[in-house]
Amino acid sequence: MKMYLTNILADPEKIQRLLDIALTSLWPLLEGALYYTLPLTFISFFFGIILAVLTALARISTSKPLQIIGRIYVSVIRGTPLLVQLFILFFGLPTVGIVIDPFPAAVFGFSLNVGAYASEVIRAAIQSIPKGQWEAAHTIGMNYTQTLRRIILPQATRVSIPPLSNTFISLVKDTSLASLILVTEMFRKAQEIASANYEFLLLYTEAAIIYWLICFILSLIQDRIEHRLGRYVA
C-alpha cells in the first residue's frame, strides 16, 4: 500500500494517467448507473412493493391457502441466495426452454426479492395499527378494501418508511450482482474498463463512490418523506 502510494506520488506522469482514466471512465460508469443500475432499482422496487403488499395481505388474511402460499414464497426467497436465484432465472431456465434477456431476468429476480423482504415489513406495519382503527372504519360503514386503502395503509406507510428505505438502499447495491448475468450496469462497466487498463483499485473505488452518492441522495429523500408523513403525529 505504502509502496504503491510512494511510487505514484513520485511520478507525476503516473498521477496524470490515473486522473485521465478516472475522468474518461466517469461517463461510462454514470451511463451504467443511469441506464441500468437506477432503472433496475426503481422498476424492481415498484413491482416488488406491489408483490409485498399482496403477500402481506395474504399472510394476514383469514384464508389458510393464501397464508400458506405467502409463507412458502417468503421462506423460499429469503432462504436462498439472491445470486443463486439470478443464475437459475438466467442460466437455468433456458434448459427448459424459457429464455429471458438479462435485464428482464434481473428485474424479475430483484422484484421477487424485494417482494419477500418488504412483505414482512408491510405485514408488521399493518399489524401495528390499532384494532380500533379497523373498528371505527367498520362502524361508519367502510368495507375491507375501503378501510385498508383509506385508513390502514396510509398509517402503515408512515411506519414502514424507515425499514423500506433499508430495503431500497440494499437493492441499489444488490443490482451489482446483475453484472454476473450480463447486465451492463455500473459495476460491469467498471470491470470491463479495469480489465483493459489494469487499474482495478481506481475503477472499483470510483464505482463504490458513485454507489455511495446514490445511496446518500436516497437517504436524504427518505428524511423528507418521513418528515412529510410525520405531520399528523405529535
Binding site: P130, G132, Q133, E135, A136, A137, H138, T139, I140, G141, M142, Q146, R150, I151, P154, Q155, R158, Y232, V233
Partner: peptide, 30 residues
C-alpha cells in the same frame, strides 16, 4: 352498521385526517 353510530372509549379517530376529514370520511367514501 348504517343504522347505528358508535362512539368509542378511546375515540378511535383517524390520526392522519383532520377533524373535518374524519367527519367527512363516511359520507364521502361510504
Amino acid at each position: 352498521r348504517s343504522e347505528t353510530g358508535m362512539v368509542f372509549q378511546n375515540y378511535n379517530l383517524f390520526p392522519h385526517k383532520t377533524a373535518l376529514e374524519n367527519v367527512m370520511e363516511g359520507p364521502v367514501i361510504v
